[in-house]
Design a protein around this nucleic acid. Structure first.
Lengths: 334, 334
DNA sequence: TTGTACGCGTTATCAA
DNA sequence: TTGATAACGCGTACAA
């Protein structure tokens, strides 16, 4: 089914068919009638490839995730897809987790879209540079802002300071940090934590690297809380890189016979669904996950349309959510 | 950057460049050398549109979700993307939730891919038929199998029977069902529940429709458990369409001062992360969400490659996970 | 072993 | 108001 067959059936040229279809240029009422009927009868749909080749645009966006597991990325994707689709752009996704040739995959993706969003440190800077130089509109997500590209992220450091300050308010003085450090946003969180602890004369602990999953948190929890029998070095509070890690740490604590928050306080980050339903309910920092995706989609749209040409960085506010996992507290959320 | 510029720089024809690039047809060693150098120097990447147009394939797959919220769809997507990407296909996603012109969106998607996966009853049957007739390979997910198309789903009815039987074993005799009925897989679950209840002389209740979210479950819980003051009609067990609904029902029960499972037992479906961490931990039916996506991707690949031409239906096994939300039980998972 | 030329399905320009 | 035709960027018979 090509435009030629439609033209033939309607007794006109392909140019006229195209005009009737796109409402570009004049078409006599009768002619349009004939063309539309032919299209109907042949149930013709223009080839996407043909259209894209001729128009020089894909009408599609890409988004690159480090991983698709867990609620955080899913929520970001939800917000992203919703906006992108409303703006008339298809959405291509790519998860780099466990893939060998990430560069090639990202390059391929770049060739299929009009612009793309790249999460944190998913892709080597060299490749990001390459994409940016190829004039492909780019939005960086959950990453330290750079001056030459758009960036959208949640506030991290100040919230981490607020969280840490809150824990100090509980009277805790020995801390542990659980969670990998190779994600930019996590690094920012640790920075905030360190700053407050140092300010209170407490030497900040080294973060214990672990995967940002429940399993990773569980392993970290065993290490941190089950340490060398009675060495008395068990931290009074464990600040986790995200909620999943925190849930894992709580599991480990339970298994070791420790009470949370009685023996050890635990905090998370993100405020995923399970954080609210867990017992103890997680004290955490809520970040606007859907909004993050939505804003990235909008920023990308501006870049593609050319509405805006100067790079822009956006930092979305977060909120400290105090629940019971950090200890008894009068302000506990109902 | 086109193949022509590369050809010119290397002093050969575009045919030779193409052959050197794709390893199709003979190219003298020296010539290949020159071509590859030119490609390198110009950092040439073949246009995806050109390649697709010439090859007549997109090297991309689509997947249509009813909704992207919640862990279930995210996990399916994870499994799908992993396999599709490994098979060298890009992944396009579409969520139909809240969209006006679903048909147009799905048709557009169909024009961008070599094949697609469609979830349950996301898309009108007429449109599905249309896509199928257009020879686009199609895999139906979590839907009653049809003879003319591939289908992958989890087992539902038998597991629902097992779940219901288990609840009867607790001695419960009044039941309520919470959750929407317009999703094919949920319908199958209710069928299983009804069958067992009827078999035990209990008149099966009508499912209370609600969105399959925590909020939806909460609303349903208020209705089911808070009903007309002391009418004594409160169910002893609430079987929920999925885990999110169950978590919402539990919230409602707590708010009404009811103990779960002491006053009312609650069960879910899926075994999402929060099910394990909730208090009480959810009794549920675990379905292999990632595998569902992975199998769909493989089935689609076979269809596209033409490795298999006859439609095939696959039903993945599920597992009853007994935890504490259904009442004290010696078999409770550790 | 290499090059010419056509086809893939549109859009858009320009002349009629 | 319409039609012929040149792009768009590539793969690939077919001829040389």
């Amino acid at each position: 089914m090509t435009i030629y067959e439609v033209a033939q059936r309607a007794g006109v040229s392909i140019a006229t068919v195209s005009r009737a279809l796109r409402n570009t240029g004049p078409v006599a009422a009768g002619t349009r009638e004939k063309v539309l009927r032919a299209i109907q009868e042949l149930s013709f749909t223009p080839s996407r490839l043909g259209v894209s080749l001729a128009q020089g645009r894909h009408a599609a966006n890409g988004i690159v995730f480090p991983d698709l597991s867990g609620p955080y990325f899913a929520e970001v994707l939800l917000g992203y897809e919703e906006v992108a689709s409303d703006l008339g752009r298809s959405v291509l996704i790519l998860s780099t987790r466990g893939r060998a040739a990430v560069q090639d995959l990202v390059r391929d993706l770049a060739g299929r879209v009009d612009g793309m969003v790249i999460f944190g440190r998913t892709v080597e800077d060299a490749v990001v540079d390459e994409i940016a130089r190829s004039r492909t509109p780019l939005v960086l997500l959950a990453r330290d802002p750079v001056e030459w590209a758009d960036a959208v992220s949640s506030e991290n450091t100040a919230s981490a300071e607020a969280l840490t300050t809150h824990l100090l308010g509980h009277g805790y003085s020995t801390f542990a940090l659980a969670g990998d450090d190779d994600r930019g946003d996590v690094t920012q969180r640790w920075t905030g934590v360190r700053r407050v602890l140092s300010g209170h004369g407490i030497r900040p602990p080294e973060p214990l690297p672990c995967e940002l999953t429940v399993e990773g948190g569980y392993a970290a929890g065993r290490t941190l809380l089950g340490g060398g029998a009675g060495d008395g070095r068990r931290p009074r509070a464990v600040i986790c890189a995200d909620d999943q890690v925190a849930l894992g740490v709580i599991l480990a604590a339970e298994e070791l016979g420790l009470d949370v928050p009685g023996d050890v306080a635990v905090t998370g980050w993100d405020d995923i669904m399970a954080a609210r339903h867990a017992r103890p309910a997680l004290t955490t920092v809520r970040q606007p996950m859907r909004l993050l995706g939505a804003r990235a989609a909008r920023a990308l749209d501006e870049l593609i349309k050319g509405t805006r040409t100067v790079p822009n960085s956006e930092i979305l506010p977060t909120q400290l959510i105090v629940r019971s996992s950090c200890g008894p507290h009068p302000l506990e959320e109902k």
